[in-house]
Write a protein that binds this DNA or RNA. Structure first.
Lengths: 245, 245
DNA sequence: CTGTATCCGTGTTGATACTG
DNA sequence: CAGTATCAACACGGATACAG
């Protein structure tokens, strides 16, 4: 049995090496590190702060426990995250990105900005709190936000986030909602519907899916700050044009 | 046999749907589009212009013909690239990114910038011409390049590229070397060794791996324009520090 | 040259069960 | 709650051979 384990480990190590791209390009190396299925989404979920194993399972619909275990081990080995224990009295294991892991955020911004133009993007899927936070950081239109100075709180499931809008920039972090001018409470998908789906705030409120507390005029302006780019042409259209031209 | 094919197609379509992330996050959708093995590298190779099937096979060491076929089909279906025929007398099939596909370049820049800090990055691997061009666009230090106005040509295998340095920015495209102040000839990996590996130009020249024609002082300055970021801490170091702190 | 067909090893997944 | 262990199904990737 031990022999079996050893040969298995050697076999998987060997194939892991074979599955890497034999390519000096740094982008290809990034895929060696983050390209396995689920890896990037695990990192995404940790971008807003440390999480427990069970949190990650809940926030990544479809991942199985053993795959999550493998990804966490691999990402830790590469120095992208750290497994540690919260100090007592919590004393529970959590996974936390390293500084370098945190610096992967521009990757999500580039991916998100680009894919927002995809004709086949379906936004009516599960949406995690971390995704919402990252998307706001990504999609804020600096021009539309200039001159706005405000604090907006979000209650998304069990977590709370505070956003500070200053001079066309946005800063969002998990934490208490002290001093918020406005607080939005609801599932991430509903907040997203308001920001990106052009669903009127009062409709969401009337449906009981979203709760607003505080400066409602601020809320009305806030939902206009995240314009989506135009969709790319559907597959085939571009080809037809090329043939016609 | 036809029945077999049909059921196979249905089966693969079904699993393709299952293998997508059930996630509204745009970054997750980007992974649905580009996350399959080799997909992103195929796009990378096309970032510098249309290529033929055989070119892609050559420039992607390790990809197999059927995988390349599948990826090209998938990327075409999503509207990321187009298969077309070059006009006579060439009259050969080529693959070309759509406008939207070209807009994926920031993804490579984010991935490359981040992975350049990886402790496990091994730059002594095969290096394609497209990778070199993208890496120069990514890593140019605008500060170091200010005030520099020059045209530098590259002969990399069968292809030639002309870079225009203007006011801290770089523009590189495939094309003739007309009006170049300097021309570098050699394999992409050797040029990379000069730009990123701090290998002196005259050593590479003496070894017969690189040829310089034109303004040699310009060459000496050019190779200083692409500084690499500091490596992240090795896996374990950060963890130790966290435990110690 | 441009792919397609086929075979096979194996990684991924999801389920179940189990440990601490 | 936080994983580990095992297993079966299956599609994917890779190599080779082959076809238009």
């Amino acid at each position: 049995m031990t022999l079996q384990k050893i040969t298995n480990r050697e076999a998987t190590a060997e194939t892991a090496r074979r599955r890497r791209y034999d390519d000096a390009c740094a982008a290809a190396h990034a895929l060696d590190l983050l390209g396995e299925r689920w890896a990037l989404l695990v990192v995404r979920e940790l971008m807003t702060g440390p999480k427990r194993f069970g949190d990650l399972r809940r926030d990544l619909p479809g991942i199985s426990a053993n795959v999550l275990t493998q990804r966490l081990a691999g990402l830790e080995e590469e120095g992208i995250l750290v497994r540690r224990r919260l100090p007592p009295p919590a004393d529970v294991p959590v996974y936390e990105l390293t500084q370098w892991g945190l610096e992967a955020e521009p990757i999500f911004q580039a991916l998100g900005r680009w894919a927002a133009r995809s004709p086949s993007h379906d936004p009516t899927r599960p949406f995690s709190a971390a995704s919402l936070v990252l998307s706001m950081r990504t999609m804020l239109d600096a021009g539309r936000a200039t001159g706005l100075d405000a604090r907006i709180g979000f209650r998304l499931g069990r977590e709370t986030f505070l956003a500070r809008l200053v001079d066309g920039a946005i800063e969002i972090a998990a934490g208490p909602l002290d001093g918020a001018d406005l607080v939005l409470t609801g599932p991430p998908a509903v907040v997203a519907a308001a920001l990106y789906g052009s669903v009127p705030l009062r409709d969401l409120e009337a449906a009981g899916e979203l709760r607003l507390e505080g400066d409602r005029a601020l809320a009305d302006r806030f939902v206009t700050l995240f314009p989506l780019p135009a969709k790319a042409e559907k597959a085939g259209t571009a080809a037809k044009r090329q043939r016609a031209g």
